[in-house]
Write a protein that binds this DNA or RNA. Structure first.
Lengths: 329, 329
DNA sequence: TTTTAGCACTGGCAAATTAAAAGTGCTAAA
DNA sequence: TTTAGCACTTTTAATTTGCCAGTGCTAAAA
């Protein structure tokens, strides 16, 4: 692609991102410094190459998915952030008594506000996270709370009804044994260590050990299931985008956003910011997902922005990169 | 209103609820056992009384808000639940190691599925709930977790960055003092008791007591803010209703559903099931909120269904009543 | 060889037109 | 009090129309 074609693609993408109208040849005469006829010729070349599309035979052009892709890969320059926005994000991180995961959530909420896209933070319990502490707190004769503290500071809690045949004191006893032997165990291995290290120990000690053992396995399984946490920002922002003006389309996308099985596929291990346009993501042909991973002090996860393919790529990428850099400081 | 008029209103409401089309006089000849002319006369009476509306001069009738209100107050009979649905809800409650609040959430999720409306569970920390236990769990030199256990079994946790000038051991010492003097204190009074009972005690004991005190107050304030919890079921169901076919309208309603300040106004103390049609609720003139409170073993809160005014009132009311009865057993 | 002016042509869009369908209100008779 | 009958109203969908933005192509200019 020659320089003029690149410039042409750039102008079309940016104009279309700005106001969602197909771009005609006359509108670009100023920018390209040549006549509309020349622009039409070049447009038709770019269309043959698959970078542009028409909405109908005599409409202006819009970028194709391939066009967007070329734009983000070869043309787009990082956008300078507006000072006010940058300051907002920085002050959140300068708040010293805010834990990193909370700071990330607040920032993504703000990014959703300034971009009008939906943001997702997908927390992930790192493989290096270990069991820090297991607490049993009796609430009454029949109810207790199991608390599980992870080495990175995450706490999970679950209320449990004590089985009829079991004495609460026996549960506490088992929890002491678990604390004695399982602290420092990576979370993923807890379940199997229960089987091989705890079960044999309690068989002789505890009367109704089967009930108690089952209860603990149950609790650990529950924890394993909601292993990673999801945070959403600007959930309803989808509804603001002109391309999602049909309720059916929005419904489809929002239902997928609610579906953890689909959302968890966003999880990223890449160090850079990656862009998934249209068919490249799980949501919709007119949706783009921009995402990157973060890692800091045992906290680990993915931050992602979800919006229309007609997205302010330069701004979103810069924002995510900026946030990532803040996190990792 | 005479019997025939009641029957007429009933048939119109139920037919419109069923398929969202205005109801004409001919369609009711069978049901009313009289000619369409007679029905037209009666319709026009009901319209003068304000129970019916026309969408345009020569359309069939639809119920007005007042018509719906009369229907739910004077005409509607509880709907018998389908056995399968009832069983689904009952089995959830028969699962003995499920805590009541989790059972409620699962049930409301199911109710959302079977009705295609949105459900909300608004947990409320009862005034009788007291502080059960305060735990400090150091994560590393600079981070710790504050755990707050409430007498009903709810657990709140917050990660805190230890201020530079403070020693973790001093925080632990303060937590011991709090545990000694504040256990059993109603949650609402904790903050003021901190001021009058804890602050004086620690002033002499703790070096940087101001920092530590501020930290704890901070944490308690955070807890107080998210005092009550919200659970949503079928968040996107709004999008399935034909009356919400304009993105703008849905956006409005969904934004309100996201806004805790608005949602918490749903909170109910009423023992019965109450219905708020159109302007009577905070959401939209075409939305109805059906809600009731529940109370069981220190767990307390509100369950609510949100849908279009054209709602299957009989079914929703019966479902909520059934769920409430299950909760209170 | 590249660029440009000019012009015929195309599809979309909005406003206007039309015809059919659904339903009402009113009148007069049962 | 109820009903049959009919004129009238509005909606809806389909069609028509003119206009507009924009294209593709051709032939001339650079």
């Amino acid at each position: 692609m020659n320089e003029r074609q690149k410039l042409l693609l750039k102008e079309i993408v940016e104009s279309y991102i700005k106001d969602a109208h197909p771009v005609g040849s006359k509108a670009l005469v100023q920018k390209l410094k040549c006549s509309s006829a020349t622009i039409r010729n070049e447009m038709s070349v770019l269309e043959d190459l698959g970078y542009l599309e028409k909405t109908h035979t005599s409409s202006g052009r819009i970028p194709s998915k391939k066009g967007y892709k070329y734009y983000v890969d070869n043309i787009m320059k990082p956008k300078e952030l507006n000072g006010e926005e940058m300051l907002k994000l920085e002050t959140i991180f300068s708040n010293t008594n805010l834990v990193i995961s909370d700071a990330i959530k607040e920032c993504m909420e703000i990014i959703s506000e300034i971009t009008n896209y939906t943001s997702i933070v997908l927390g992930k319990d790192s493989e290096y996270n270990t069991l820090k502490q297991l607490n049993i707190i009796p609430i009454d004769e029949k109810k207790l709370v199991v608390l599980l503290v992870v080495s990175n500071g995450h706490v999970e809690n679950k209320q449990v009804i004590v089985p009829d045949d079991v004495d609460v004191r026996e549960i506490v006893k088992v929890s002491e044994i678990i604390n004695k032997h399982l602290i420092g165990t990576p979370i993923k291995e807890v379940s199997s260590k229960m089987e091989f290290e705890i079960k044999p120990r309690i068989q002789t000690l505890i009367k109704e050990y089967e009930s108690v053992y089952a209860m603990f396995q149950n609790v650990f399984n529950d924890f394993a299931e909601k292993n990673s946490s999801v945070f959403y920002g600007g959930r309803t922002n989808m509804l603001k985008q002109p391309e999602f003006d049909e309720v059916d389309k929005v419904k489809n996308i929002m239902e997928k956003l609610e579906d953890y099985e689909i959302v968890k596929k966003i999880e990223s291990n890449e160090d850079g910011v990656n862009i998934y346009i249209g068919e490249e993501n799980e949501f919709d042909k007119d949706v783009t997902v921009v995402k990157t991973s973060y890692k800091a002090h045992g906290e680990e996860g993915t931050i992602a922005i979800i919006g229309p393919t007609r997205m302010e790529y330069d701004k979103v990428v810069t924002l995510l990169e900026f946030l990532k850099s803040q996190i990792e400081r």
